[in-house]
Amino acid sequence: MVKREHLSLEMECLTLFQSNPYLFETIQGLEKRLGRRMSDLEPILEGLTAQGILQKTGEGALAYFRYKEPAVIAEFSFTSELEPL
């Protein structure tokens, strides 16, 4: 579990990707854009990826992250089946 001190940075990453759903960025690129250390960013990005919030493509230095939209059921009733659209 990520330490609580990292919460702020975690939220920063989260808000960043949320408001920029078409941001495709490497850890290195994020380091530049956010002005944060790569070593701090890495566990957070991996964590968000593990939770399915971000999607990671590729390996190594050229691996990039992007936002992954959550599942949406637009008209869900108390009886409907839970098959996301």
Partner: peptide, 10 residues
């Protein structure tokens, strides 16, 4: 439309 934020290398 897409506005893509991306690094040049990627």
């Amino acid at each position: 439309l897409r506005v893509i934020g991306i690094s040049p290398d990627i």
